[in-house]
Simulated assay, not measured.
Amino acid sequence: MNENDLRQLIKTAPERGQRAFYDKYFNYVYTIVYAKLKCYAKPEDIDECVGDVFAHCFFYFDKQEEINGDLKAFAAAVARNKAVDTYRKVSRHKERNVSIDDTEEMVSEENVAESAETIEMRQLLYDKVSELGEPDSTIIIQKYYYGRSSKEIARIVELSSDNVRARCSRAVKKLRELLMQAGFAR
C-alpha cells in the first residue's frame, strides 16, 4: 500500500486506515524510540512511548480534513519528539540520592574522560547517520546496530534486497566522508 492509498484509507475508513498505518510503520517507529531510549528507559517505558506515538498520530489524523506530507517522515518526527519527552520524564524520576555516610565508599573505577569521549563519539555517529536521510539511515541502523540481513531490511524499508545492499554500500562511504569532515579519524 502506497502513501496516497494509506492517506485515503485513513480518511475514508479511519479504523482500517489507522490499523494499516500502525502495521506499516510499527517497526520503524519502534526502532527510532528504542534507539533514543535504550540506555535510559525500561522496556515498558519504551513500549508506552511507542503507543503514545501512534495515539498522537491517530489523534492528529482525526483532526485533519486533509493529510498532506510524507507519512513516514511525520511518524519519525512524532517518534523522536515523544522519545525526548519520555527521556525527560524518566530522567526526572530517577533517584539520584546518596547518603552522606556512603560517600567515602564511593570510588568509581570508570574513566570519566574516556566515558565522556565515548558518549560524544556515539552522539556524533548518530547525528551523522541521521544526516544520511531516509531510507539510508534506517538501513545503516538496521544492518549495523540490529544485525539484520539485507532481505530483512528490504521488508522494512520496502526496497529490493539488491537495492538495500547498494544503498548500504553508498551510505557507508558517505558516512565515512561525513565523519572525516567532522574531524573523526581512526
Rank of each mutant, 00 (worst) to 15 (best):
A113H: 03
A113T: 02
E114Y: 06
E114G: 03
S115F: 12
S115C: 09
S115N: 13
A116S: 12
E117I: 12
E117V: 08
E117C: 07
I119K: 09
M121R: 15
M121E: 11
Q123H: 13
L124N: 00
L125N: 02
Y126K: 14
Y126T: 13
D127K: 12
K128F: 05
S130Q: 15
E131I: 01
L132V: 04
G133W: 03
G133E: 04
G133H: 01
E134V: 08
E134L: 09
P135S: 05
P135N: 00
D136R: 11
S137D: 08
I139Q: 00
I141E: 11
I141K: 10
Q142R: 10
K143E: 06
K143C: 12
K143V: 12
Y144C: 10
Y145N: 14
Y146T: 01
R148E: 14
S149G: 04
S149K: 10
S149I: 05
S150M: 09
S150N: 15
E152S: 09
I153M: 03
A154E: 01
A154C: 05
R155K: 15
V157K: 03
E158Y: 11
E158P: 02
L159K: 05
S160M: 01
S160Y: 08
S160D: 11
S161M: 09
D162Q: 14
D162N: 15
D162Y: 13
D162S: 15
N163W: 05
N163Q: 12
R167I: 05
